[in-house]
Design a protein around this nucleic acid. Sequence first.
DNA 1: TCTGGATATTTCATGGTGTCAAGTAACTGG
DNA 2: CCAGTTACTTGACACCATGAAATATCCAGA
Lengths: 149, 149
Amino acid sequence: MGTGNTTPDPLTLEVVDLIGSVVARYHQEYEEAAARHALTGPQARLLGLLSLEPLPMRRIAQRLKCEPSNITGMVDRLEARGLVERRPAPDDRRVKLAAPTEEGLRTARGLRESLDFAREPLSALTEAERLALRDLLQRMLGDEGENAG
Amino acid sequence: MGTGNTTPDPLTLEVVDLIGSVVARYHQEYEEAAARHALTGPQARLLGLLSLEPLPMRRIAQRLKCEPSNITGMVDRLEARGLVERRPAPDDRRVKLAAPTEEGLRTARGLRESLDFAREPLSALTEAERLALRDLLQRMLGDEGENAG
DNA sequence: TCTGGATATTTCATGGTGTCAAGTAACTGG
DNA sequence: CCAGTTACTTGACACCATGAAATATCCAGA
C-alpha cells in the first residue's frame, strides 16, 4: 500500500496517462471482438481461459478475481449456448469442471484471431522497439510475477 | 478493421500478454481505489471526468463511450450521494450540465491521490526508462491522437 | 407565426455482471 | 458415525449497459 502522497513528476503522470489510453483501447477492442462473436467481454475472457484447459468453478473464480457464485451464472449462460459444458471431476464429486465444447473451442479460436489489438498498434514498432517495450513492461510488473493461482 | 490473419511472431505475442497484465492490474487497482471511497469503477471515472470540467449528459456519454440513457442513472446515484449536481446550461434549456459538488471535488482529489498505480510500478524504472516507455507507448497509440470528441 | 424535424434528457423494460448470505452435497479427520 | 470444511448453487439485491419510446426544447423554413 503506497504511502505515496507527494505529486509524481510530470513524466510519470504522462506515462500513467498513456497507460490509461492503452487500457481504454485494449478494452474497447476486446469488447468489440467479443461482440463480433455475440459474447460479452467477461464471457470472452472466460471462454478464452477454458480453451487453455478445463477448470473447476472455484478455480475460475480465483483466476477472474470474482465470487464463485458469479461463475455459476456465467457458465450457465455459456452452457445454454452450447459453448461450454460441465463435467464431473474424476476424484472429487463436489467439483465440476467447466470445459469448452467443440463449438466453444472454435469460438475461442476465432476470438483470438479477431483480437487485433495484438498486431495492429504493435506493428508500428520495430522488433528492437518491441523488445525494449517488453523489457520495460516486465520491469514495471516485475515484483508480482505470479503464474500459479 | 485489421485484415491481419497471420500469426504474429512470439515477441509480439509476449508483448500483448504483458499489456494484458498491465490492463488487468490497472483495473484492479482502479476498482480498489474507487472502493476505498465507496464508489464503483464507472462512478470514479465519471467523477474524475467531471472534476476537470462540468459536462452535458450527452458529452459524458460520448467520453465514456456509452448510451446517454446510461448516464442518467449514474448521475442520479452520484447526485443522491451529494457528489454531483445538475445545472441548467445557460444557452440551451434542453441540456443539463453535471458538475461535482464541493464534496465531489474532494472525493475526486482523494481518489486521484489514492490511485497508486501511477507511482508504485513505475517507480521501478529510472527516468531514462520512463522516457523510453513514454515514447514507445506514444508510437503504439500514435495513429489515433484524438482529443476533441 | 406555425409547423416539422432534429436534439437532449429521461423513463421503462431487459439482460449481464457482481456481491453477499444461505442452502445442499460431498470430502475429511477424528 | 459425526463435526467441520469445501464446492457449488440459489436467491435477493445493486449497478452497468442497451434500445425503444416519451417529453421538452431548439431550429429552419413556409
